[in-house]
Design a protein around this nucleic acid. Structure first.
Lengths: 244, 244
DNA sequence: TGATTTATTGTCAATCTGACGATAAATACC
DNA sequence: GGTATTTATCGTCAGATTGACAATAAATCA
């Protein structure tokens, strides 16, 4: 990074949040309906401008709070990627730093008539179906989905979609929803419980549901991801392990 | 992303490039010596301001070209992460979008006396040893190294450090340098050549080196990463595979 | 009281992995 | 030239992992 040449170009910077959750065994994304131009009336990712003196993670959680009413980050928030600044906003060059939130299903603010209404939408409806998104948000959602899929492969972040305590079946439903596949319950159980440093039996059980009660697990403390930071691989062996 | 409120804050945006290569079996990073304040005389990552009308990837490759003299991107360039804008530049809030370049060893411009001199430095000297970096570049380098390490685990990007054609031993040297470990040559050979869709035998052999000549391989066309885009996992099986 | 549903434990063959022996094919040394 | 050395490559074998699927456990449902 060299000196200020004459005067460097200045850009408005926004954060956008791709909030994903699993509802009714289907992956959902949180979208708001835009009330003003450009793209008025269209669906968009929640987000907004970074304020001066503010950090990216701060801005992302602030915008999430403003547009959904949550009082604190309800899951795992990490940076996804940055887009722009060229040619993604009709008003001019705007850089956006997209973030990814993996969270249990949480209620969104039922805002008044003049606020931007946030709501959950099935991801497939947006990516395959006819739902249009503002700006380049469709591409961002696509990248977010890719990231989420691969995160499940080699990190314990699947648990971020569950609450504090969860059953193996609930965890499996997350994998099935994100990957869009079915998994063998018996093999999944073996792998999930057999992976060292992943799950911890709470000793408690579910009750009241149909079928045999299930044991409740929680994420091992050390496996819990640090907010905003990349999470260490836990589930998968590398290409090859060191000999020493 | 809502409307322009009153007037959104504007930020200078820079790109920084963490260029990694393997020289003499050791992972090296490209650094420049700063000629002006702040941090004059200190080592820093190559980078600079994003110009108006420019995209991030464009800016990154332009800055790399300006500071090293390469005429085109000499390896795999992808976005790493964004940092700031708060509290990382004494002159004020500056957002930087860090990029990661994985490339074969390439010569850097021997600039005149008034240009910023770029040179390769062993990564361990920076992270463990006494070398200080300007701004938050030490943290960025640390993140880049983490990313590079994990990329090798589940993507074919190790080959990005090699030239067009390479031997299995050269590829293994990459893994050993990035991971800082030793790998069993026989098992590595088996895994590398046995992974479908990874390597392709060119039919040609090395000659002149000590020992038995080695077969030359190249990356399978379909496995070649798209510049700037995340690369599909190739080497490792996922946590669990779809049943259907 | 079954019938049904869901959870959990096993079993077994195929594959993969890690440790390491043996052989192949070049250069290096004398 | 002949042998030592170096590096590449192929094989072997036991243990771990995976995928397919049987069997059992423990609840609700009808």
């Amino acid at each position: 990074m060299p000196e200020l040449p004459t005067a460097p170009a200045l850009f408005p910077v926004t954060v956008d949040v791709v909030a994903l959750t699993v509802r009714n065994d289907v992956l959902n994304v949180l979208l708001i309906t835009r009330l003003i131009d450009p793209f008025r009336g269209m669906l968009a990712l929640p987000g907004g401008f970074v304020l001066s003196g503010e950090d990216l993670a701060t801005a992302a959680s602030r915008e999430l709070a403003e547009e959904t009413g949550v009082d604190r980050v309800p899951g795992h928030l990490e940076q996804l990627a940055s887009y722009g600044p060229k040619g993604r906003d009709p008003r001019g060059d705007v850089l956006t730093v997209a973030h990814l939130l993996l969270a249990p299903d949480f209620p969104v603010l039922s805002a008044g008539s003049d606020a931007e209404q946030a709501a959950w939408y099935p991801v497939t409806q947006v990516l395959d179906g006819g739902l249009q998104l503002a700006f380049d948000h469709r591409r961002i959602l696509g990248d977010a989905l890719e990231r989420a899929k691969s995160k499940l492969e080699y990190s314990p972040l699947g648990a971020a979609f569950c609450g504090e305590e969860f059953t193996i079946a609930q965890l499996r439903a997350v994998y099935e929803a994100v990957w869009g596949t079915r998994l063998d319950p018996r093999n999944f159980h073996r792998k999930a419980t057999g992976t060292p440093g992943f799950l911890e039996d709470t000793g408690r059980m579910t009750a009241g549901d149909a079928g045999r009660p299930a044991a409740l697990f929680r994420l091992v403390e050390a496996a819990r991801p640090v907010a905003g930071q990349p999470s260490r691989a836990v589930l998968n062996p590398p290409l090859m392990r060191p000999r020493d």
